[in-house]
Amino acid sequence: MDERSPLRADLYVSMVKLAQQADLVPQLAINIEQVKKWVSQWDISTTKLQNLLRSVHDALVEGGMSDKATKVMIDLLGTYTEDNASQARDDAHRCIVTHLGDPNTFLMDHLLLLKPVKFLEGELIHELLTIFVSGKISQYQQYYKNNTDFVKSLGLSHEQNLRKMRFLSFVQLAEDKKEIDYAVIQKEMQLEEAEIEDFIIDVLRTKSVRAKIDQLQKKVMIMSTIHRTFGRQQWQILRQTLTQWRENLGQVQTSLQQLDLMQTQTPA
Rank of each mutant, 00 (worst) to 15 (best):
F170N: 12
F150S: 13
Q20C: 01
K218C: 04
V151R: 07
L60N: 02
K177I: 04
S66I: 03
I237N: 06
L11Q: 10
E159C: 03
I131F: 10
L173Q: 09
L53I: 11
L7A: 05
E193Y: 11
G122C: 07
K145G: 15
Q253I: 03
G250Y: 01
T266Q: 11
I125G: 09
Q34M: 04
I44P: 00
K164Q: 15
Q215D: 04
A69K: 13
V97D: 11
E82L: 13
H93M: 06
Q234L: 01
F167H: 08
S255Q: 14
Q20I: 00
L107G: 00
L120Y: 07
A92M: 11
K218H: 08
P6I: 06
H110Q: 05
Q253A: 12
I131L: 03
L162Y: 04
L249C: 04
A85S: 14
I74G: 02
P103N: 08
Q257K: 13
V72A: 13
M108K: 05
D23C: 12
D102A: 12
E179W: 10
K219M: 15
I74A: 13
L242F: 04
L191P: 03
D23E: 15
E175Y: 01
I222L: 03
F119Q: 09
H227G: 00
D109V: 00
L77W: 05
